[in-house]
């Protein structure tokens, strides 16, 4: 029991110590002209879906939950967001080559159609990010109009 107590205390100290190393924040107030919504003049309804279900991990502006301030949770989020942005960054979409834009559109459509995105682990916590059948169809139909 005494050993447990010591281990517990050490871990507690470590956890408290971690709080002094906050994660880098992915937030920007300015929406760049290369943003997906600006590039394609996306209709408001579709834009809202993208903001709620995609932009937190796939843009340069994350609407962080309170627990992102708690480490190591914040670090994991940061790592996750940086991977998400590497795959697809809506804020920079307009700067992609035409070929890359088309490739990403194709991938978006199939990811949403196959229910692979938004991630189940994400919608588990953010239930508002879940796409209803109707929303899913509207989103996919809209994305298909952007393909050539």
């Amino acid at each position: 029991m005494k050993l447990l107590k010591i281990i517990g205390l050490v871990l507690l100290v470590v956890l408290v110590g971690l709080q002094f190393f906050p994660a880098r924040s992915n937030q920007n107030t300015i929406v760049p002209s290369t943003d997906f919504v600006k590039t394609y003049k996306v209709p408001e309804q579709v834009a809202q879906m993208l903001y709620t279900s995609c932009y937190n991990c796939h843009s340069n502006n994350t609407d962080y939950p309170w627990y992102s301030r708690v480490q190591p949770v914040g670090w994991f989020l940061e790592n996750h967001i940086s991977k998400g942005k590497e795959e697809l960054n809506f804020s920079e979409f307009g700067s992609y080559s035409g070929r890359r834009q088309q490739s990403k559109l194709t991938s978006m459509i199939s990811q949403v159609e196959d229910d692979k995105m938004p991630l189940a682990s994400y919608t588990f916590i953010h239930s508002d990010a879940r796409l209803s059948a109707v929303n899913k169809k509207n989103l996919v139909d809209y994305l298909k109009t952007l393909k050539n």
Partner: peptide
């Protein structure tokens, strides 16, 4: 996986 699928 942040993988992308590709259809269409």
């Amino acid at each position: 996986k942040m993988g992308h699928s590709t259809e269409g």
